[in-house]
């Protein structure tokens, strides 16, 4: 059983919401950082919608995961690429799906090993609940109420779509 959703409308709403929050905080030059792979795809779209000129940061959090001693290293780990220093920057961290919060914990740790940002906002396309850590998103594309055995996955990069699967 699989459902497919288009995400263009969700991205438009996210961009508007994010712009509003950035304006309210007086942030003019946010640094967008996407988490590999789905988060980078979402961040690329938001980057375009917000018409930012500075290149996107890309984060691979494999070296910061908390399950290394259980499942070993992700064989497809890529280098993280942060365009400039993160010191005193206002960062928008972007991921596709927010679930347990462990990925975001790892991403925050990695960002802080690059420097000390002024602030971090979290933007996610899907918040599916099921948090295991005290982490919440500032900007959410859509909420999904999924059972633990259901998986939501972002397919892409072109076109972006969401599919929900049971099992696996």
């Amino acid at each position: 059983m699989s459902h497919n959703y288009t995400v263009d409308k969700l991205l438009d709403n996210m961009a508007a919401d994010l712009q509003q929050r950035l304006t309210a905080r007086g942030v003019r030059d946010p640094l967008l950082i996407g988490i590999h792979s789905g988060g980078v795809w979402v961040a690329e779209r938001l980057h375009g919608l917000l018409k930012l000129s500075e290149p996107l940061g890309k984060l691979d959090i494999s070296f910061y995961r908390d399950d290394f001693t259980r499942i070993g290293l992700n064989p497809a780990v890529r280098p993280s690429q942060l365009p400039t220093t993160v010191d005193d920057r206002h960062i928008v961290l972007v991921d596709d799906v927010l679930y347990t919060g462990r990925t975001i914990r790892a991403a925050l740790n990695e960002i802080f090993d690059y420097g000390r940002p002024a602030s971090v906002l979290l933007a996610v396309l899907v918040d599916r609940g099921g948090r295991e850590l005290p982490i919440n998103a500032d900007v959410v594309g859509t909420q999904m109420d999924l059972a633990p055995d259901e998986q939501v996955k972002l397919t892409g990069p072109v076109p972006l779509g969401l599919s929900v699967k049971r099992g696996g």
């Binding site: 070296f63 910061y64 740790n109 990695e110 802080f112 090993d113 690059y114 420097g115």
Partner: peptide, 8 residues
């Protein structure tokens, strides 16, 4: 990185 270390 500023902190030339990963926690692996």
């Amino acid at each position: 990185q500023t902190v030339k270390k990963v926690p692996l």
